[in-house]
């Protein structure tokens, strides 16, 4: 690499660097310092060593939240695969522009409307799903949101539903950037749709798959709104998620130091997973 190129590199990324220095670094450092402090919003930070981390690690809510959140994250691969299939199928059916819009709607309808519909579907006494189970299969429907074993799987199902449209738009943008001549060449070679999909589409779209996976994992670890809507803010060991616990500790229980410690533990976990994903990128993602 030459010096001039390096200089230009910094010039091109300078907007982000400036933003980082002005808007981001300060708050990050402050929040990091809070890990080791007790703070009452008014006075200076009081150094308390590792007490906050110790308290977090000894909280049963933390371990429940970690287990719930880690389990919840498993929805990501399902969502990525379904989104990609939807994006590919959309490309070959009539009326696709209306369908893309419909699939995107859950990302723009208000969260309360989304929650209301899911409750309408899954409520144990009048819910559409439980009624169907009862009438067709004579099965007593479960309490999807109140059964400790079903709460997280239900959240996963709703998240898959809510993310397919958004992700498949990202995939569509990726698919549209693939040169059509590559497909024509494959068609001339006599390749069928399935093998074209695996031999050409998947490798060429792998940068987008990588992007969607990494960002979805980050988001899934930060799930908050959906959990908050479906448990009315009253948390128990089976329905608490990490960010909801951070929110409670910091903004409702006044343990700001512990909230920061937990936030950074969460950041550390996501970081390790992302490092792993970046290693996988080198082997699995195909860049031209």
């Amino acid at each position: 690499m030459n010096k001039k190129e390096g200089l230009f590199g910094y010039i091109f990324i300078s907007p982000w660097i400036i933003g980082l220095l002005v808007f981001t670094i300060g708050p990050i450092v402050f929040s990091f310092a809070l890990i080791f402090s007790s703070w009452n919003l008014i006075g200076p930070l009081k150094f308390v060593g590792l007490e906050n981390i110790w308290n977090i690690l000894h909280s049963t809510f933390f371990w429940s939240a970690l287990r719930n959140t880690a389990f919840f994250t498993l929805y990501v691969p399902i969502s990525v695969i379904l989104s990609l299939i939807v994006a590919v199928l959309m490309n070959r059916i009539p009326g696709s522009s209306i369908f893309r819009l419909i699939y995107f709607l859950p990302s723009v309808t208000p969260a309360v409307a989304n929650a209301a519909v899911w409750i309408w579907l899954l409520q144990p006494s009048y819910g559409v799903v439980d009624n169907a189970l009862k009438n067709w299969f004579n099965i007593e429907g479960p309490g999807w949101f109140s059964d400790p074993n079903l709460y997280i799987p239900t959240l996963m199902m709703i998240s898959i539903w809510g993310s397919i449209g958004y992700n498949s738009i990202l995939f569509t943008a990726g698919l549209k950037s693939i040169d059509k001549s590559i497909y024509e060449a494959a068609y001339l070679d006599g390749s069928n749709s399935i093998s074209t999909f695996f031999r050409i589409t998947v490798p060429l779209i792998s940068p987008t798959i990588f992007f969607v996976t990494v960002t979805s994992v980050i988001w899934s670890f930060q799930v908050f709104d959906l959990a908050y809507m479906t448990n009315n803010g009253v948390t128990s060991y089976y329905n608490i998620t990490l960010v909801q616990y951070i929110y409670q500790l910091g903004f409702q229980y006044f343990h700001i130091g512990e909230a920061s410690a937990l936030a950074w533990i969460l950041t550390g976990i996501i970081f390790l997973i992302t490092l792993f994903e970046l290693q996988a990128e080198k082997k699995l993602v195909f860049y031209q």
Partner: peptide, 23 residues
């Protein structure tokens, strides 16, 4: 720097909200 960029996405908003408001 690219890894740092990814890290800024990982920190939950709840953790930086108060310092950002102060800023």
């Amino acid at each position: 720097l690219f890894t740092l960029l990814l890290v800024t996405m990982m920190i939950p908003f709840e953790a930086v909200m108060i310092p950002q408001y102060i800023l």
